[in-house]
């Protein structure tokens, strides 16, 4: 697809900004997102090319304004739902529950 992932030769993204002594992961959710993607991929319900395609389906504006592991998260969620491991409803419901638990822990 002629998506935003196909960036070779595009202009205007600004300078390359290497981070000195960069850690492998920048947040705990990146670790979990990475590991969940590998672990769920091991079922063989989808292949690597399907995973790439799932990430490419992010709308261009979102693709270009989100980070690498957010692309993975989008792809993982889409595949989990497409292959009936989870539904969007239960994901949204669980997010609300976790947010409430977190709010409760704060007070």
């Amino acid at each position: 697809m002629n998506g935003a992932h196909d960036v070779g030769g595009m202009h205007g993204f600004g300078p390359i900004d290497p981070e000195v002594d960069e850690p492998v992961f920048h947040a705990e959710w990146e670790r979990r997102c990475f590991a969940l993607s590998v672990a769920m991929g091991a079922y063989g319900s989808w292949n690597l090319d399907m995973s790439r395609y799932a990430r490419e389906t992010l709308p261009p504006g979102d693709y270009l304004t989100t980070s690498y592991y957010e692309h993975w998260l989008h792809g993982l969620q889409r595949q989990l739902v497409e292959h009936d491991f989870l539904s969007y409803d239960e994901i949204e419901q669980r997010m609300r529950t976790l947010q409430q638990a977190s709010d409760h822990a704060e007070t």
Binding site: M1, N2, D6, G8, G9, D49
Partner: peptide
């Protein structure tokens, strides 16, 4: 080619 599905042929090539 300009498929709406997946391709590894980049647009620039």
């Amino acid at each position: 080619i300009h498929p709406t599905g997946h391709t590894r042929l980049p647009r620039y090539a």
